[in-house]
Design a protein around this nucleic acid. Structure first.
Length: 947
RNA sequence: ACCGGGGUGGCGGAACAGGUAGACGCGCAGGACUUAAAAUCCUGUUUGCAGCAAUGCGAGUACGGGUUCGAUUCCCGUCCCCGGUACCA
């Protein structure tokens, strides 16, 4: 009986489907466990071998938890709205709903192939009106809420209106615009429009104005990654910044709680650090500087008010409103030129710029304490969106300020004495201040408070907490997204009644933008006639709360019943890429906190534990075309030959070969041109090209000729991102067909730690396949058939299986699936050596293998005579008594270098060990008659003799 | 530029709390079985030097320093690669 994986896998997949083996109930006496994968975007390219890495890991863990007695929720769905589908629609005229549905079908087929234990009855799609009805509903709750600093939570807007009617807004300063202040009488005197405008500044989902990448030639707003070097990626047309009305989420109101919440979740330190840095909470002061000969004030934010006397110049962002107002006539030309240059650059380019640039405005700020005139510059290294868009530059203490001063030959005042060496800035907080007036003699970190106090007394500055994080832009000028359930009535945003949800996305034939950068919906007369909002929601809207919908996916009355969300509670394990570290994770954490505040769910962190999966990179293969200037057959040189093309030897070799192929005995090359070309990795075995397949691959290569090495064509290789355009994608379907899903799953895990990125190499999969066949042979022999017996196992056999269980269990618990697979291999190798074919041992092996290779496990489980599914077996317990050891082979090192081994009882004392070690011949040799300085003995680890 | 991660044999990787560097697998080499091949099995495989060999000696975890009896692991500095940087998802 052979290991016939395709029959086995088909058989059990049908069995599991027929028996609803993956159906999960919201009602179970077992403890619950929720395993979630990050939502995939169903791209047209389908899944390549890099995508399922996280899904396999989560699937193994979900199945493992099930064997451990948990009621496990492990759902899957699709983040189905998004830009690529819309771009595809524009390019091919296929409606996004149609292409998305087709892509989803393809994804589903690919996933089914890998036998994930998803409960597909719970599938969600963000583009399904039954789903986005609730995205719209949550949006309306955000729209109808504001953040009450007193209670430190989101509350309904109705309460705020009552307060305004009683006492104005003095108790609740306006988060959107601090200058808005009014009494109860004033509030009552405002007309509806004015009142609504004020309320908009409080709402958690609010309207404002923001800059977008506007491309006049394409007539559309572009995403950042569609803009390259200031021009559109498609067509290379100029892109400018354009201000448009936009929706925002006031995520900054949650900044502190997003920080605090990190202490309650099990994310990696790196992840927490990235989020902390993204939120970027800082403490400092806002200071107003008078500007010489104008009435304007320059407001700067600084975290280092202690360095106030080290300010040598000011820098304001080129888009700062003051630039125009304070630039002197002499400088105007230069400043305008500089601002135009900066405008053509993306924020990314500005931040990445190493070259120092800037322009003096001609204006001077006046130092509030010593009246010094401080030149005001503008430079791209200061961004308008952060702080006040202006900084006070202290070159002796800040590296960028220092370089700027050096570059433009500006004065550098030293306020920290010896701590500044004149060669580079010193950002210390521990130096003692000098040249600093009333701060002289103080240690910098103590001076911060004192400086702020003096600024506040003088009325020119205030203590200020600042966040780097900005409010989240929540609208897109696109078609393929959730419509906003908002009607504009005389300039007032009015929510649709809940009974009118979902507001369905209208069908359109054309996806082009509307006038002035408005979204495509502005071209739909039936839409604009109702004065509906023409923007749509961004990609992260639907993915900010999807983990809740899986709990109660068919609920028509609520986004998720409280009973369901209380039962499943937080996601116990969330697996996904670290590319979502700040975007998706912060948004969904904010939404969860909001739903908690409004008492719609019972917890404020969505994900209890987060594991990041690495990327699988592609391993590209190249063929090397020789540039013959001949229109005849393309000629390709094997890698070893192409590599030496321009050595005398290679030159001769290639020349002769080409003459031969082209039948042109007089042909000669001055130098040989070689062009590397990506070749489909699927027609390359290791590095050896299947030349016949290559000829069939593309018409232009049909009569290709090859210069071989040892009769073979070898390709070059390089690790790159896995993508269709590089022909380095591998479809899991092909590997499943060739080796089976069990092999594929185990191989993906065997590649390396899930968290790490690594290149894909199909070659190694055979080793894992061999392992499964070797396992099979513990049960069945090709000729003899059944070989397993019901004999009682010996101690050595028990020891082997319990060691394996222990290693696999520990590896699974810490997501070290690669070492888990290797523990299986070691176990099977040992059982084979022991000739152990005993049911009691093999049955345990089959159970622990279930999460990794469910099909073969189910088959062998039944072969051993079991009637029920192995999915519901219970995980075997380790019997420690078979694992106890009484002695250990200790490595004995001399000065840290291992020289020999000694078998010593585990309970040996230091003295006993020293005696044994010093009596050893090899140790004696190294001691050369001298007494050792020291003998280090670490129990159960090693021995080191110091000479 | 900033934030985060990573760099170990020909390759993927292992070494879990500072204690035998290279488990497991691929590849490669040699051998067994076979008319032959596939499959399977066995042996070897970090590297340099010495030796028929067992083995011995030295070097070695990106690079340069440091702490320690002992460093792939901790600290300082440098280089390279990957992810993110707010409208890709």
């Amino acid at each position: 009986m052979e290991y016939n994986f395709s029959d086995i896998e088909k058989k059990w997949q049908e069995y599991w489907t027929k028996n609803g083996s993956y159906k999960v109930s919201n009602d179970s006496p077992k403890p619950k466990y929720y395993v979630l994968d990050m939502f995939p975007y169903p791209s047209g390219a389908g899944l390549h071998v890099g995508h399922p890495l996280g899904y396999i890991a989560s699937d193994i863990f979900a199945r493992y938890k099930r064997l451990k007695g948990f009621n496990v929720l492990h759902p899957m769905g699709y983040d189905a709205f998004g830009l690529p589908a819309e771009q595809y629609a524009i390019d091919h005229g296929i409606h996004p709903a149609v292409s998305t549905a087709a892509n989803i079908e393809n994804f589903r087929q690919q996933m089914d192939n890998m036998a994930f234990c998803f409960d597909w009855d719970r599938e969600v799609r963000t583009s399904d009106p039954n789903y986005y009805k609730w995205t719209q509903w949550i949006f309306l709750q955000l729209f109808d809420s504001w953040y009450d600093r007193k209670q430190n939570k989101a509350v309904p807007l109705a309460d705020l209106i009552t307060t305004f009617e009683k006492e104005g807004n003095k108790a609740h300063p306006c988060p959107g615009d601090a200058s808005i202040q009014f009494t109860a009488e004033e509030w009552k005197s405002f007309d509806n429009r004015r009142q609504q405008d004020i309320l908009m500044n409080y709402r958690l989902a609010f309207c404002g104005y923001g800059e977008v990448n506007w491309c006049e030639a394409l007539g559309t707003v572009l995403a950042n990654d569609e803009v390259v070097n200031g021009v559109s990626e498609r067509g290379g047309f100029p892109v400018v910044k354009k201000k448009l009305r936009q929706w925002y989420l006031r995520i900054t109101d949650y900044a502190d709680r997003l920080l605090e919440g990190l202490e309650t979740v099990d994310f990696s330190d790196a992840m927490k650090e990235m989020q902390t840095n993204w939120i970027g909470k800082s403490f400092g002061a806002e200071i107003d500087f008078d500007i010489f000969r104008t009435d304007e004030k320059l407001k700067v934010y600084t975290t280092r008010p202690d360095t106030l006397f080290g300010v040598d110049f000011m820098v304001i962002a080129p888009e700062h409103a003051l630039v125009n107002l304070i630039t002197t006539d002499q400088q105007r030309g230069a400043v305008e030129e500089y601002v135009a240059y900066v405008n053509s650059r993306s924020e990314r380019e500005r931040m990445a710029e190493k070259k120092i640039s800037g322009c003096f405005t001609g204006a001077y700020a006046i130092h509030p304490f010593n009246g010094r005139h401080i030149p005001i510059w503008t430079s791209e290294y200061v961004l308008a969106g952060y702080g006040t868009g202006a900084i006070m530059a202290v070159p002796c203490g800040d590296e960028r300020d220092f370089k700027f001063a050096r570059h433009f030959g500006l004065d550098i005042t030293n306020i920290i004495g010896d701590a500044y060496n004149g060669e580079e800035a010193n950002p210390t907080k521990d130096a003692v201040l000098e040249n600093s007036d009333f701060l002289d003699g103080l240690v910098m970190k103590d001076a911060i408070v004192i400086a702020i106090r003096r600024l506040e007394e003088k009325g020119i500055g205030i203590r200020k907490v600042n966040f780097r994080m900005r409010d989240a832009a929540f609208s897109r000028q696109r078609y393929w997204g959730e419509p906003f359930p908002i009607v504009w009535e005389n300039g007032i945003a009015t929510p649709l009644d809940i009974k009118n949800l979902p507001l369905e996305l209208p069908h359109v034939e054309k996806y082009g933008p509307g006038p002035e950068g408005e979204g495509p919906l502005s071209n739909v007369p039936a839409w604009t006639a109702r004065h509906l909002e023409t923007n749509t929601m961004p990609g992260y809207a639907g993915s900010s709360w999807y983990f809740l919908r899986y709990m109660d996916p068919h609920n028509q009355e609520e986004f998720c019943s409280r009973k369901a969300s209380d039962y499943w509670n937080q996601v116990d394990l969330y697996i996904g890429g670290s590319e979502h570290a700040v975007g998706h994770l912060l948004y969904s954490r904010m939404w969860t906190k909001f739903l908690y505040d409004r008492n719609l769910i019972g917890y404020e962190e969505p994900y209890k534990r987060l594991v990041n999966q690495g990327m699988i990179q592609g391993s590209s293969r190249f063929v090397y075309r020789i540039e013959t200037k001949s229109s005849g057959a393309p000629i390709f040189a094997s890698q070893g030959i192409a590599g030496i093309a321009n050595t005398p030897e290679g030159h001769e070799l290639i020349t002769l070969a080409v003459r031969n192929i082209l039948n042109d005995p007089n042909l000669s090359f001055e130098s040989i041109g070689i062009t590397p070309i990506h070749v489909d990795v699927n027609i390359v075995d290791g590095n050896e090209l299947d030349t016949e397949a290559f000829k069939k691959w593309r018409a232009e290569y049909a009569n290709a000729q090859f210069i071989l090495e040892e009769g073979k064509y070898f390709c070059g290789s390089e690790v790159e991102k896995m993508s269709k355009s590089k022909f380095n994608t591998v479809n899991p379907n092909d590997l499943v067909a060739k080796y089976g899903a069990d092999t594929f799953r185990m191989y993906e895990m065997f590649l390396g730690p899930v968290e790490q990125s690594k290149p894909w190499d199909t070659k190694g999969i055979e080793g894992v396949h061999r392992f499964l066949r070797k396992l099979w042979r513990l049960f069945f022999d090709e000729t003899k058939g059944k070989v397993w017996t019901t004999e009682a196992p010996k101690d050595a056999e028990w020891k082997c299986i319990y060691q394996t269980i222990k290693k696999v269990e520990e590896a699974t618990e810490r997501f070290s699936f690669n070492t888990g697979v290797s523990a299986f291999m070691i176990g099977v190798n040992e059982l084979t050596d022991l000739k152990c074919y005993k049911k009691d041992v093999l049955e345990k092996l089959v159970i622990i293998l279930t999460p990794y290779a469910p099909h073969v496990a189910e088959e062998l489980w039944h072969a051993l005579g079991n009637e029920t599914s192995v999915l519901d077996a219970s995980y075997p317990k380790v019997e420690e008594k078979y694992l106890v050891e009484s002695s250990k082979n200790y490595p004995v090192a001399i000065n840290g270098k291992t020289r020999t081994e000694l078998n010593i009882a585990l309970d040996a004392t230091q003295q006993q060990v020293e005696e044994m070690v010093l009596a050893d011949e090899i140790v004696k040799k190294w001691l050369e008659g001298n007494a050792p300085k020291r003998v280090v003995y670490v129990k159960n680890k090693m021995i080191n003799v110091v000479v």
